[in-house]
Amino acid sequence: MDALERDKILNARAMSPERKLRAGLELFELNRALILATLKSQNPHADAATLNALFLQRLAQIRQLEAGQ
């Protein structure tokens, strides 16, 4: 076990249950923002609805990959 993992464990011990529950959802939001920003750069003229549709397609692909693991 390396120092980075040990730090993650000690940080998790210091977090309240509510904070930890929120963290998983906030990470989803961070991923969503990163994917949308990438899609925007790849499709600079797409409107918000189109970008959201592309995001939903990308999310479905990610879920398929995860289910196959």
Binding site: A12, K20, L21, G24, L27, N31
Partner: peptide, 11 residues
Amino acid sequence: TNLYGIPRNTN
């Protein structure tokens, strides 16, 4: 699981 372990992303 996040409640008891190291929080990770969830879809």
